[in-house]
Design a protein around this nucleic acid. Structure first.
Lengths: 328, 328
DNA sequence: GCCGCAACTGAAATCGGTTACAGTGTGCCG
DNA sequence: CGGCACACTGTAACCGATTTCAGTTGCGGC
């Protein structure tokens, strides 16, 4: 690879001038032209490693998510990426696989690679952000809140749970179950609380503990929990799915049992981008994942730019698309 | 951040020794202990930027894909990531959005950041790999083949098209349409050729041009093409979808028209991981995306390790899961 | 007791940029 | 015509690791 020195020699200027040409400080027009043409000839690309070493920063932001195969997170990633690349930053996508150790490894890399900042959907309530925060790098939490005093973007999870449940109640369903993600993840807990609230207001006689299941945030989790619910002596007549994949699993199982929605009511918190089901039979509480990514990226870029106001948490509103078919 | 010099001072050794401790060359036990404890105390993490600058390489590989929101590619990414992180490499995921310019930008970054290698599913037949190959960095093509003499991993696309079509023929369908991705992408063209081959053997009287549609590789594309096909004077009684998302779009449209499979036969090339449809009604030619990622990553790591045998192309076999329901 | 080898160690050069500092030259003003 | 501001330019010192090269030490063999 050609270096700045090669270019300087060919253009008959000093390396400093070459650097200045590429960084936009005052250089006479002829020299700019000379440098540009020399750079062209040599296919010169500035070496970012060297630049980063000197500048003590790199135009890279880390995005750590627990499941790269979940469309919710890729939609979010897409939002982050769009904002970041607009601003000249690239995004390193790290899949923590919901494991705190993998997450820690990636955060270590973020430090060692001098990344400018990190957007993270934590794996766990035990996620350790101490060391990355100690470096002074900005960190923005997405989707899940943390115990740290940092910027965050979350969904209105409790409201999502409530409106999903309410919509099913309004549809005439009664024994409305809830399948959520791991209990210790605040997102899951909040959504469950919302469901509980709506249901205990409408049908105070129901035993909600019986109808509540905590699973993984994956298709399997939804399937397993749905099977369990159907095996109950008195199975539910509707179900709220705590995230998109759980929803997919639950619907799959219902269909396999011949209980296509709206025979059993289904409300899903999260979108089902690749579902083939007629889109009217299921209530969907759409979570603005892309928007979350965009917001988080903007906040992070502001912090990188030196903004040091007190930390903020943005709560994004959801949008419910009610099942048009009402119970028969 | 603590540097190697701080550690050296605290441990009363030279910086070189500290470096050696972290890179495993011979250092006396006492010094190793001293360095380790000093490093511990100072929370020392070696600065990768500096290391990369000196080493002229970084344990990072780039993965460039055309659509980060397509589960096919995220499944593949997952495979790449697993192999890479096992080997101590991290993966930068770049979304080219099927645009050659975005792709070029990312490839430039790969060079400038000294990435060790790149795995790429090209955006287009005009994708320009010249500059990255000129740097001598290994590049592995996935999913789509290129005109360059480099390693590649592809699916048996023609066979996928043939077996999808054959399965529908065996199911008793006759006017079997094909909706593929952009004609100029070899993957799409090959799958179409496979379909054409099977169909013209079985039903030589059919006008295949009439039944062939090229769309984008996205849900919209599938929807639009399916609508067009249904609007034909003599609509098809079955359809082969050229990728997973096209399949989703096609099935959505069919369902909306009250033509749930198997009323109209559907075969999809690619998996439908998040579909809620009863999984038996649609034929799926499963493409081993994860395996493709794993294979590509291994090949790339071998090349990074200095392997310089002539370039290889691995063709992965598909697996068909026939629709169990046969036409009524 | 001397020699040679192996194991360790440190000083200093190096990777390729950025940038502080110290000029140089030009033009304008008084 | 002297002085000053300003625009431009080059030299050299960084950034924080790795690595070469040149020792130093200790030990076994003769």
């Amino acid at each position: 690879m050609a270096t700045i020195y090669d270019v300087a020699r060919l253009a008959q200027v000093s390396p400093a001038t070459v650097s200045r040409v590429f960084n936009g400080t005052s250089v006479s027009e002829e020299k700019v032209a000379a440098v540009r043409s020399a750079a062209e000839q040599l296919h010169f690309t500035p070496n970012r490693t060297a630049r980063n070493l000197r500048r003590q920063s790199s135009e890279v932001i880390g995005l750590v998510i627990p499941d790269i195969e979940n469309p919710y997170f890729t939609e979010m990633a897409r939002g982050v990426e769009d904002v970041a690349s607009e601003a000249g930053y690239s995004v390193v996508l790290c899949n923590s696989d919901a494991q705190v150790e993998k997450e820690a490894t990636y955060l270590r890399i973020a430090i060692a690679e001098h990344m400018s900042g990190v957007i993270i959907a934590t794996a766990d309530e035990h996620s350790d952000l101490d060391s990355i925060l100690a470096t002074g790098r900005p960190v923005v939490a997405v989707d899940r809140s943390t115990t740290y005093d940092i910027d965050g973007v979350v969904m209105a999870n409790r409201a999502a749970g409530t409106s999903a449940a309410k919509d099913l109640i309004d549809g005439g369903y009664r024994r409305i179950a809830y399948i959520g993600g791991p209990e210790h993840i605040d997102t899951a807990a909040e959504r469950a609380a919302g469901w509980r609230e709506a249901l205990s207001a409408a049908h105070p006689d129901l035993d909600l503990d019986d109808l509540e299941r905590f699973a993984t945030f994956r298709v399997d989790g939804g399937r397993e929990a749905m099977e369990q619910l159907l095996a109950l002596p008195e199975p539910p007549d509707a179900v709220v799915a705590g995230n998109n994949l759980i929803g997919v699993g639950a619907i799959q199982v219902l269909t396999e049992h011949g209980l296509t929605p709206p025979q059993v009511g289904v409300a899903v918190i999260g979108s089902l981008p690749f579902t083939t089901l007629s889109p009217t039979a299921v209530t969907v509480v759409r979570l603005p994942a892309r928007h979350m990514g965009v917001t988080a990226a903007r906040m992070l870029l502001e912090r990188i730019g030196g903004d040091d106001q007190p930390s903020r948490t943005v709560v994004l509103r959801n949008e419910i698309r009610s099942a048009s078919a009402v119970r028969v």
